[in-house]
Design a protein around this nucleic acid. Structure first.
Lengths: 121, 121
DNA sequence: CAGGATCCGTAGGGATACTG
DNA sequence: CAGTATCCCTACGGATCCTG
């Protein structure tokens, strides 16, 4: 089963950042902060432990996130963006920028819809 | 159920382009071409009719794709990118660019792995 | 503190057949 | 030609409880 060889690097890129929480994790770490597991949890109150670990492990596997374990009790694990992960910055920025514009676009659309509803009465 | 109000427009943007075939459809239409249903199918041989229609309808709903029906027999339906959809260009470009770089990154990683395997013998 | 182990529900997607 | 209509399957994510 081949995966479209030269075709569509967009999909390649998307595969790295899709996942319900992945983009958010990446955003937080792209700030440059080094964060512990529970710090990340606090930043994303709705994520479950399971999902946080799973996504972090994937991101580590993908060389986007660095995971540093301090062998001590109680445990301490720090997560940070890798140099390579930083290269995602422009991509995330582009999406952030477009997302913001999109919110505006939707606002306008809804206002139009509302005014049309008004006329209909 | 609120959706992180001001937070993370990245997710907003992602929601518009995720889906197994959506990015590919967008890419094809971003070229500016006006394409008929079956033309799109031919461009994506592995997509099913069902998925193509579903994704096209979503994209239409999202105001990314314009759908024009010619009421004739046999039917003729043309799909094209909307003006608004074109604004996705920079986002797609950023991802395409990063995707290409990522492919290179993975190549290097694999070569390193291979050479390490070699040393282990 | 930072997880691992289970169980479970749903949405996204595929296969196939039919139609105006 | 450009779709519907069904049925089906699994991968992703959530909930909950346990542990070194």
């Amino acid at each position: 089963m081949k995966k479209n060889p030269e075709q569509c690097q967009v999909v390649v890129a998307l595969d790295m950042i899709v996942g319900k929480w992945k983009p958010i994790i990446i955003q937080h770490l792209l700030s440059g902060d080094i964060l512990r597991f529970n710090e990340l949890r606090r930043l994303m109150p709705d994520i479950t432990q399971r999902m946080l670990t799973l996504h972090l492990r994937e991101l580590e596997e993908q060389d986007i996130v660095q995971r540093v374990v301090y062998p001590q009790i109680p445990p301490k694990v720090e997560y940070s963006i890798t140099e390579y992960g930083k290269s995602l910055g422009p991509v995330m920025d582009a999406m952030h920028h477009w997302g913001a514009a999109h919110v505006e676009h939707m606002k306008l659309k809804n206002e139009q819809g509302a005014s049309l509803d008004g006329e209909a009465n």
